[in-house]
Design a protein around this nucleic acid. Structure first.
Length: 492
RNA sequence: GGCCCGAUGGUCAAGUGGCUAAGACGCCGCCCUUUCACGGCAGAAUCGAGGGUUCGAUUCCCUCUCGGGCUACCA
């Protein structure tokens, strides 16, 4: 018998935008698949109709694609052979019902008519008695026939059932976790019989996931730590249906630095969504780079990797067992590295930022690409964390002159300063070639024993840029040219 | 409360029964520079605690502490 082909899935719920935590799960599943030459599957888990968000699926997939993650099968790939890939559609085809019926017939599952209110009362009583909450089987000691009669009775009252699966009392579920190693959880810790089909006819997550992973021949399930406690339930279903259990791996969660809790969609204190980073001008390469290093580490000492490099060196054994905090500062650094590394492709984005901000007109960049390149360089693109940060840097003085204020006025108001500025303007007027070197020469020639350092530079800088600090002044003048510079000085 | 998982500088982390315990971000200082940024060079800072095992524990075992997860007709 040959080893089965590796098939791995990422299964988002379309409840909103792509969250950092989910993106991480997706990235590692993708890395795992591509490293081992497997097939990467995307499945949409939309069984909670109340939480589904319009366009949620599209947003998830778009953001995944933006990150540079590709998949072989999914709801948007028409010829995928395990279609459909949305659980709602699979439910409509009766896929889950078939196995629910099977379990019902085997007597492993049964109909339960307890209302949420009843369950609440039971739970609260258990908690008050310091017991672990667990489901109380309501047909204890009844024959099948008696149970059927009960069903009739409840139906007559107009009650809608859920289907629960019976959990054996003395089983220990074991698995060898890709990340955590040997795991075992006793069946009595599960909390009793649990729901596999909701009153609305939808399967629950823990059931649908097993059916789909089995039917889709999924071999490896890599997911967040928060699913550890679901694993025994799912193994129970595999056993009940007589199916092989896939290999599980539970990756640690990302912790919010501010709250110390797992990164949650409800957190306001940190940027949660890939979309937000995209908007600010983080590069997908940087996002993958940073996230790929959260909870996983390579062998060497390097920090900057392409996704291809990640694929090559990925090793599930190096997945960390300890939760990692999300350090936005390091992300900024990683993104800065990527901006500098891929400057050619970033420059048009920088120009876009200026257009979006209403600073530059669209098309301007195409007309004078070289000027823009030089301008971004002088403005300090080397120092930005994300592309949006270029806006204030480039706006002043290259697109707009800051307002004068008292502090600035004071710098240029003395007679000495006025004379200096006027001398500079004079020399600049006579200058043939306005290069940074030549401008520097002019400024040097204006330097005296008394007039040097800030006394020399600040008045000139204010006269030309209306600021007392900023990028290298001669470079600014060289870029602006003679006319523009002189106009600024005259407008003073 | 119960069950599960974890613990190396502020953060991400490598690593080992014996090493001065890597590296990166951040921070501090210095240099470069008219200034900011960039860059360069240094620096501070870590094995949670207590017991074992051992000639020797950061490393192996136990307990504690702390942190996290789960405890749904959510996924």
């Amino acid at each position: 018998m040959t080893e089965k082909d590796i098939r791995v899935r990422y299964a988002p719920s379309p409840t909103g935008h792509l969250h950092i935590g989910n993106a991480r799960t997706a990235i590692f599943n993708w890395l795992y698949t591509r490293h081992f030459n497997g097939t990467f599957v995307i499945r949409i888990e939309d069984t909670d109709t109340a939480r589904n968000v319009e366009d949620g699926e599209k947003s998830q997939l778009d953001n995944l694609a933006w990150l540079g993650i590709d998949w072989d099968e999914g709801p948007d790939k028409p010829n995928s052979k395990y279609a459909p890939y949305r659980q709602s559609e699979r439910n409509n085809q009766g896929i889950y019902q078939k196995y629910i019926n099977e379990l019902l017939e085997k007597g492993i599952a049964y109909k339960s008519y307890k209302t949420p209110e009843q369950l609440n009362v039971e739970r609260e009583a258990q908690q008050a008695a310091k017991q672990a909450p667990h489901y109380i089987y309501e047909y204890e000691g009844l024959t099948n026939e008696e149970r059927e009669n009960k069903y009739q009775e409840y139906e007559a009252q107009g009650l809608k059932p859920v289907i629960r699966i019976h959990v054996s009392e003395d089983v220990v579920y074991k698995w060898d976790d890709i990340v955590k190693g040997k795991m075992e959880i006793a069946s009595k810790e599960i909390g009793g019989d649990w729901v596999i089909q909701k009153a609305d006819g939808m399967p629950t997550y823990n059931f649908a996931v097993v059916v789909d992973d089995h039917l889709m021949d999924i071999t490896h399930v890599l997911r967040g730590d928060d699913h550890v406690s679901n694993t025994p339930k799912q193994i129970g279903v595999y056993n009940a249906l007589g199916w092989d259990v896939p290999k599980f791996g539970h990756m640690t969660l990302i912790i919010n630095t501010e709250t110390g809790k797992k990164l949650s969609k409800r957190d306001e204190s940190i940027l949660q969504f890939i979309e937000q980073y995209k908007e600010l001008g983080y590069l997908p390469e940087a996002m993958i780079n940073f996230i790929g290093l959260l909870g996983w580490s390579p062998v060497g000492e390097d920090e900057i990797f392409t996704k291809e490099e990640f694929v090559n060196m990925f090793d599930p054994k190096r997945l960390s067992k300890a939760p990692a905090k999300f350090d936005a500062k390091k992300l900024q650094w990683v993104n800065n590295q990527w901006i500098r590394k891929s400057l050619d492709s970033v420059i048009p984005k920088l120009a876009d930022e200026l257009v979006k901000a209403g600073v530059a007109t669209s098309g301007d960049y195409q007309n004078r690409t070289e000027w823009y390149k030089k301008m971004f360089e002088i403005a300090g693109v080397d120092g930005i964390a994300y592309t949006q940060e270029i806006v204030p840097l480039a706006t002043y003085p290259f697109f707009k002159l800051p307002e004068m204020n008292n502090e600035l006025r004071e710098v240029v108001s003395s007679d000495v300063a006025k004379q200096l500025i006027s001398d500079f303007a004079q020399q600049l007027t006579n200058l043939q070639d306005v290069s940074a070197d030549n401008v520097m020469s002019i400024i040097r020639s204006l330097q005296t024993e008394q007039l040097r350092g800030r006394d020399l530079w600040n008045p000139l800088r204010v006269a030309i840029t209306r600021a007392i600090q900023g990028p290298n002044l001669p470079e600014i003048v060289a870029l602006m040219g003679k006319e523009w510079t002189l106009k600024n000085i005259n407008d003073l």
